[in-house]
């Protein structure tokens, strides 16, 4: 790998590394007094209305959800943390109220699959590209050239390359 490949690799790496924390950062909140509407909504945002169709609790307009938000306020006033409130709701109304299932039992599949998918596909991509490139490097003469129809696009590219050479 030459220094240019490294530079591009570093560019990719930086973006990947910079993006990684969003994968691993857990969201939790500690109770802050006094309990404001915003704090209640922040907790309710990651809970789903057990009755309505896929609507977060903080924006669900039904009376039942208003009562559940009042319940969240009560719990926050008692000093409960976000995760305690989440557990309480999950216990009362089922795991369905959580915006993401808790990491246990069968639910682990949901946590494991995305990294497995990403790593597998990137590996496949690198492998396929490596094999295709190696095939070219081993026998460059014996491999037919890819069809290149002389389109305006190709001509433009040639034009640009020539310009650079000048």
């Amino acid at each position: 790998m030459n220094k240019h490949s490294k530079l591009i690799g570093i560019l990719f790496g930086l973006v990947l590394i910079a993006c990684l924390p969003s994968v691993v950062l857990a969201q939790d909140a500690t109770p802050i007094s006094p309990v404001t509407d915003d704090l209640v909504n922040a907790v309710a945002h990651d809970l789903y209305c057990p009755v309505c169709e896929n609507i977060p609790l903080d924006v669900c307009p039904t009376q039942a959800c208003a009562q559940w938000r009042a319940l969240i306020r009560e719990k926050l006033e008692l000093g409960w943390s976000t995760s305690q409130i989440n557990d309480f709701f999950a216990e009362q109304y089922g795991e369905k109220v959580l915006s993401v299932p808790s990491a246990r039992g069968f639910n682990w599949a949901l946590y494991i699959l995305p990294p497995v998918i990403i790593i597998s596909l990137i590996s496949i991509g690198v492998l396929v590209a490596y094999l295709l490139v190696r095939r070219f490097k081993q026998k460059p003469g014996s491999i037919p050239q890819a069809p290149t129809s002389v389109t305006t696009e190709v001509l433009d590219e040639i034009e640009q390359d020539l310009q650079k050479e000048r």
Binding site: S22, V23, Q27, D46, Y48, N54, P56, G94, E95, K96, V97, L98, S99, V100, P101, F106, N107, L110, P114
Partner: peptide, 13 residues
């Protein structure tokens, strides 16, 4: 068990 897979999963992944 009924579960919901909501925005945090998709955003992070």
């Amino acid at each position: 068990q009924q579960v919901t897979v909501g925005p945090p999963f998709y955003r992070r992944s």
